[in-house]
Design a binder for these strands. Sequence first.
DNA 1: CAGTGAGCGAGCTTCCGCTTGACTT
Length: 790
Amino acid sequence: MLYFVPIFIPTLNTPMLKNLVIVESPAKAKTIEKFLGKDFTVKSSFGHIRDLSKKKLGIDLEKNYKPEYVVNSDKSKVVDELKKLSKDAEIIWLASDEDREGEAIAWHLSEVLKLDPKRTKRIVFHEITKTAIEAAISNPRSININLVNAQQARRVLDRIVGFEVSPILWKKVKPSLSAGRVQSVAVRLIVEREREIISFKTDNFYKVAGLFQGDARLKAELNSRMSTREEALNLLEQCKSAEFMVSDVTKKPSKKSPAPPFTTSTLQQEASRKLSFSVGQTMTIAQRLYEAGHITYMRTDSVNLSATALDAAKEVIVKEFGDKYHKARAYKTKAKGAQEAHEAIRPTYLDRQKISGSSGEQRLYELIWKRTIASQMSDASLEKTTATIDISNSKSKFIASGEVLLFDGFLRVYFESSDDEGEETTKDLLPPLKAGDKLDAVEIIATERFTQRPPRYTEASLVKKLEELGIGRPSTYAPTISTILARGYVVKDDRDGVDRKYQVIQLKKGNITENQKVEVHGAEKSKLFPSDIGMVVNDFLVEHFPKIVNFNFTASVEKEFDDIAMGNMEWTTMIDRFYKPFHKDVEKTLKESDYTKGERILGKDPKSGKPVLVRIGRFGPIAQIGESEEKDGEKPKFASLLKGQLIESITLEDALELFKLPRTLGDYEGKDVVVGVGRFGPYVRHNSKFVSLKKTDDPITITIERAIELIEEGRQKDREKYIKVFENDPDTQVLNGRWGPFIKHKGNNYKIPKGTNAHELTHDECLKIVENQPATNGRKGKSAARKKSK
DNA sequence: CAGTGAGCGAGCTTCCGCTTGACTT
């Protein structure tokens, strides 16, 4: 008998790996590796490693909605590496976030890497500290498949909505449009807000304020508004002969408490209000701070601070401001659908009040530091004083109010801004007063005021609203805004204010005088406006898919995802119940709805008597005189709408103005100066050269002087366009572009390496750069450009 | 910088959530 003795040959080329830990982010991997020691290798999956196919629906409707997952090409490298490492590892620790998406990442990893369940452990930790990670390691569990299924339901539902509704828009409205559970609601909010603004009727009223003299001077406001000018005049008339007496003085203590630490959405809001950052800017800067190790993770909906952070905050506050400024506080996350996988956004080291970096990084960091520290500080305490001043011959009363800050508390470092556009009334200390004091009226002024229309959304206030509705996630707020801007549903724009007259009635020394004053009102900066296409698409969706664009749709499906996560429902059952009626709506809409142009008839053209209408044309919104089907043999006339004009709200007069373009302004250097509106907006044409009008110019009202200014500006730019041309090689040039100098060679563009002076480039150096660099497309490579932007 | 959806027509576009670079005319 022969015995085979097994021989173990140690694999020399691949040293046995004891522990492989996989997390989502490389920055997180780096910090964790430090805590775990040499027996642990920590790698990152860079988020999800696979997804439904980009091109196809990727869901088998015949096989009970079976998802067809693919590893994206930009993830194959990561996946290959993890595969290799996991083969050699004794134990694989899946340490992605504890929420739905994190669980799915762990599951996809175990599927794709074909992990052996016996060697695979699922762990979660809530903060990145040695103790928390060690605790997690000693409490492993297995993958929670119910939670994974809730994620699959979420993913499949979003794919079905997006990929079945978008193509309807391509057919019925315009190619390349899109619809989705999140973006379509975001657009709806903006469209509906604009309609509220369009239909808003301003009301006027009179606010009455008095300046009184007792032992000292004080200001007071009338306790009621006067609704008409007559009423205001009457009151002032009465005040002429009235006596004023303090009837009551009340002092009341009050408190102010700090706001909770930052989440993604509150950081975006405050950075927008205090630093004027866009939502995208805030996230890019926060990402850099995170990668540099300055702050905790920036995509979170949690307001929780770790125990170590609380200790550190206390230490800083006590040291900097003293004991009585510290108050330990725990905050609860109230956002709908919050998943609390992370901490709030806070400085990693709270004893660092400032960091080095770009000015944006420094300012954002400081904001985060202040907010975090303030959240662990004492209340501010105030004393509010209210004095009532009676008018002897009227029931109305004047109210004077003042405020004293008794203890500043958290206000010492931070106060939260608000979105309110209304005028802030700063309250000061009142002079000493007591009931029975007689006062003289120095002057009493009634000022005409106006009711405020609802405000337009900023990027940040839209995020706030979406979060309140439970729509979208911290990782998607910024991309959602980019999407609705990219589709052209929404534009971010400024508006100049317009002059508004208002009446001021003054009573002084027994005389009543009346003045008219002018104020600028309605100016807007970086606000979100709906476009015509945004409004048309919104109306189309509201009509045919009311359920999808309902503000509560996400909240109601979230409930069902929770049921799935609890194991109370099969995910495919939930999807089936949604899909069956939804798909019927899809087919019905495809069959029955018309091509949508958003047409609106404004009236009749006084010259020809033909109807004037506005609608969406092939190249954007247009005004049209006459019917498209030529009854009298005459073709209709067309004119593009100007920026800021909406099909919804344009007047007949404004539309008729458009037909006056293009118009000749006059003569310059013996050639006509013509203003018109073309493919790229309003322009001035002179000597067959085109110059675009600036944002503040209006083609309807522009003067010849201004037009000449623009022509000269254009010439100046042309002169600066060419940095270098080479006599014997017309194919190679150094040009000045939007992003600085670049090399143009045979229709392609090439970047100039950093640190190179473009003005000193020789012909040979240019060709060298061209050779060593892949061409970025010039104007020809349209398809290549599209592919690159994925 | 013109045109203003059926003058012929292939093939393309699109979702939401996780994550970082690569790269922008």
